[in-house]
Design a protein around this nucleic acid. Structure first.
Lengths: 136, 136
DNA sequence: GCTTGACCTAGAGTTAACTATACCCCTTAA
DNA sequence: TTAAGGGGTATAGTTAACTCTAGGTCAAGC
């Protein structure tokens, strides 16, 4: 079976070896195996699992909670419901983040317009007294 | 002119007074005025400006860079280009974040499906050997 | 056989953005 | 007139997720 060194995996996942070792210390990868002389050996499936870990991180999940998920994975079918719940919950938080970003983007685009027109006019004054209490 | 206390503004922006004072210490609100006995007095326009600060924070901009923007605002029309550039750059990074979230969401939704079907089958085994090296 | 470079651990240091504490002042209501 | 409550400062502590350093092992190549 093909295996990979920690630095290869780091490159593949766009992480540092420090980060991978940190994740290991936090018990996020109990599945990786070792050579007899104490070097980690990553399998293809390990890399897939780490991509899920990265996905959960990207969704804003703290590492301690990701650890719960990893533990449940080792526990087999009895934890299927918990694992399902985790991803449904993640789906909701990511949806909320998307909404937040959308609002943020609206304000930013408004400001782009504000400064574009101000630049064209040579002064910000054209926006003064436009709307009282507005965001302009 | 109507003014607001720090705790009122905190409520309005959904921040703590600690956070507002921290922002002040970081020179993110040089525009707020003070009573003779040393209390901050927020105007309506100050709250609008702080909403922009919060928007920049939400876009992932570090506070030290937001400070640059605030400084430029005080410098008048000579900094219009810099300020425009900042928002155009923010627009690009938020766009990138949206892309990232989209990818994250795809994996999460795939996992929701994975666990939903596993739950229905009563076992995760139905997904074994489906695709070698796949994300399932 | 010696150097180089990849791997290892333990543990210290970093960073940003708060968050809290200690202690002070001022106003207001009982 | 005193106690509560809201304001202020300075400074210390927290947190998460790295990031780095020191010091060590081991295999390969010259």
């Amino acid at each position: 079976m093909k295996t990979f060194s920690i630095s290869t995996v780091a490159k593949e996942l766009d992480l540092t070896v420090y980060t991978l070792r940190y994740c290991d210390k936090e018990r996020l990868m109990p599945f990786v195996e070792w050579t007899p002389n104490g070097t980690r050996l990553f399998k293809e499936t390990d890399i897939s699992a780490l991509k899920i870990v990265e996905c959960l991180k990207a969704s804003g999940m703290p590492i301690k909670e990701i650890k719960n998920f990893i533990d449940w994975c080792s526990d087999g079918d009895s934890t299927l419901q918990q694992r399902y719940d985790i991803f449904m919950e993640r789906k909701a938080t990511v949806e909320a983040q998307k909404e937040e970003l959308k609002k943020t983007m609206e304000i930013i685009e408004h400001k782009c317009f504000y400064y574009k027109t101000a630049l064209e006019a040579g002064t910000e004054d054209i926006h003064k007294n436009k709307k009282i209490g507005g965001l302009d």
